[in-house]
Simulated assay, not measured.
Amino acid sequence: MPLPSRDEAMALLHEWVQDPRLLKHLYGVEACMRAYARKYGGDEDLWGLTGLLHDLDYERYPTLEVHPRKAAEVLREKGYPDELVYAVLAHANYLQDQYPRRSLMDKALYACDELSNFVIAVALVRPNRSIHEVDVQAVRKKMKDKRFAAGVNREDVIGGAAELGLDLDEHIAFVIEALKPVAEQLGIAGTGSAVPAEAAE
């Protein structure tokens, strides 16, 4: 079967997800996955839809017992390819015994999941709420503050870069750039004239 279109994926997404914060997270991961697909020569639509749909069930079933198994079940029923369904299952660390991350797409999804959320959080506390005020140093500084975006697992951020074979700073810089084209959609385009990140420290 051909890969469902993004419009079809969006219709499914909005059937399952209403929380604006979760939607922004999914749009952010999609953007990062598309960027990594271009970097690694992957199928941009396949990688993008994997990012867009990986937490499809989280709003309804945010428990370890169900998430992301329910998402995988729904996606399989809807005719999404096996590699997309597998990556959705493999992004959960607690399912690594059953679904170890094998492909670059699996590893990229894991690597982008927590970090994209963290970068968005950093952008939202900059003076103009702008991704254009965020650099690697700003992200690193906030990672040391355990109270900031406390729900983001720092070990997953570090481990994600390592699984891709990337230096953490390189990975952070890549994610920052990947999020810029969708900044408006994510609410991090800025409220005024952007200032350089170093000046916003």
Results as ranks from 00 to 15, higher is better:
Asp106Ala: 05
Val136Met: 04
Asp55Ala: 07
Val85Gln: 07
Tyr80Pro: 01
Ser116Tyr: 04
Glu65Arg: 13
Asp135Arg: 00
Tyr86Met: 05
Gly159Gln: 08
Arg147Cys: 05
Leu56Tyr: 03
Gln96Met: 07
Phe118Asp: 09
Val85Glu: 09
Leu164Gly: 06
Trp47Tyr: 15
Leu53Ile: 04
Phe148Val: 06
Arg69Glu: 10
Pro62Gly: 05
Ala123Pro: 00
Glu114Ser: 12
Val66Trp: 14
Val74Tyr: 10
Leu95His: 04
Val119Pro: 02
Tyr58His: 11
Ile120Tyr: 09
Arg102Val: 15
Gln137Arg: 15
Val157Asp: 07
Glu83Asp: 15
Arg126Asp: 09
Gln96Trp: 09
Arg140His: 05
Pro100Val: 09
Val74Ile: 15
Lys70Tyr: 14
Leu89His: 12
Ala149Trp: 00
Val74Arg: 10
Lys142Leu: 12
Ala121Cys: 11
Ala162Leu: 10
Asn153Glu: 13
Asp82Ser: 11
Val85Asp: 08
Tyr58Leu: 14
Glu73Gly: 07
Ile131Tyr: 04
Gly48Met: 11
Ser103Asp: 06
Ile131Ala: 12
Lys78Asn: 05
Tyr94Asp: 12
His67Phe: 03
Met143Lys: 03
Val74Ser: 07
Val122Gln: 08
Thr50Leu: 06
Glu83Asn: 14
Glu73Ala: 12
Gly79Cys: 12
Asn153Lys: 08
Thr50Val: 05
Ala161Leu: 03
Leu75Thr: 04
Ala87Arg: 00
Tyr99Cys: 06
Val136Ala: 14
Ala71Val: 01
His132Pro: 00
Arg69Phe: 09
Asn93Met: 10
Asp97Met: 09
Ala111His: 02
Ser116Lys: 08
Ala111Gln: 03
Arg101Gln: 13
Leu124Tyr: 06
Arg101Trp: 03
Gly48Leu: 08
Gln137Asn: 11
Ala161Thr: 08
Lys107Asn: 13
His67Pro: 01
Asp43Arg: 10
Thr63Met: 08
Lys141Arg: 15
Asp135Met: 04
Tyr58Lys: 14
Thr63Arg: 11
Pro100Trp: 11
Gly79Thr: 10
Arg101Val: 01
Ala72Trp: 00
Tyr80Ala: 03
